[in-house]
Design a binder for these strands. Structure first.
Lengths: 150, 150
DNA sequence: CACGATGGTTGCAACATGCTACCAAAATAG
DNA sequence: CTATTTTGGTAGCATGTTGCAACCATCGTG
């Protein structure tokens, strides 16, 4: 078999996350969902993705509990795809990717879509990795415990 | 052409990030790099990835400025792959994915690798999305400004 | 009912992935 | 210095996945 490698049984949480959302389209679908997209056609137009691919992705995202298929909010017979609590918990992931992209792949002053605080219209704080007692941590300040029975 | 769609010219920072690291292996390579892997063989054994795939991924990660190829630290003639500042800036992304995976894809008490504060050996705080003035923000508290000249 | 919009499915060609075998340079053993 | 092992790849093939275009059933609207 030459099936794509899966990580859903890995002992590493990062691997299991990547298994659920780590392909080219899933994260962008989730981003659009945070941005208010709900309908098949909305995702399709926004992303420019082929319809069969979008169908497959929506299915796996529903299967992994990130999205949920619900009756359309406008009362029509169509269905909509909305974030579950598990999907909404991806918010820090999307924000982290957004901030990394802003800082590393745009020239100074180059226009780009921007996520802002709805109440004040201002940009968000950069995400910070903090220790239990609130110190800012850099990568070198942390280490991985290979396994733990929690 | 049926080439895989690229997002490197998207106006959305999330899309450009996904373009750089959004495939099945790149994020796991970066995770291993944070965890101390430097040599080709280390990545290969740790991930179980085919060598030709690893070669290709390391090349693209170097090309996009996430990794850098440097002379081996042990004085040998081999090369090592280390995170650039741009790569190290992915720390919040990895931490966010790790926390999401821990909370959503492990049964209570199921063992998994764990990222801890090196100084105190304790787990990290959950990442928080904060407004400029320090309020905790949920997805609904934010909105996307489609374009802005910064 | 007729017609467009919506939300798909199907088939095909091209590309990407995984596997195995092979290989050259560097390190190491003798 | 020679033989062997380790390291870091490359090449070729079979199969899986992606993207595209065509087709189609259902829903909504006039």
């Amino acid at each position: 078999m030459v099936t794509r490698t899966r990580f859903d049984d890995s002992e590493c949480p990062v691997a299991r996350s990547v298994d659920a959302i780590g392909d080219w389209w899933s994260l962008l679908i989730v981003r659009d969902a945070f941005d208010g997209s709900r309908r098949f056609g909305e995702f399709q137009r926004s992303l420019g993705v082929a319809k069969n691919i979008l169908t497959a992705r929506l299915r796996t995202l529903v299967a992994s509990g990130v999205l949920e298929s619900v009756p359309a909010s406008d009362g029509s017979a169509y269905r909509e795809y909305v974030l579950t609590p598990r999907g909404k918990a991806l918010f820090p992931v999307i924000v982290a990717l957004r901030q990394w992209g802003e800082q590393n792949f745009f020239a100074p002053g180059e226009p780009h879509s921007q996520l802002v605080d709805r109440r004040q219209g201002q940009r968000l704080r950069p995400l910070e990795v903090l220790s239990a007692d609130g110190r800012r941590l850099n990568p070198d300040d942390t280490t991985v415990h290979k396994i733990s029975a929690q």
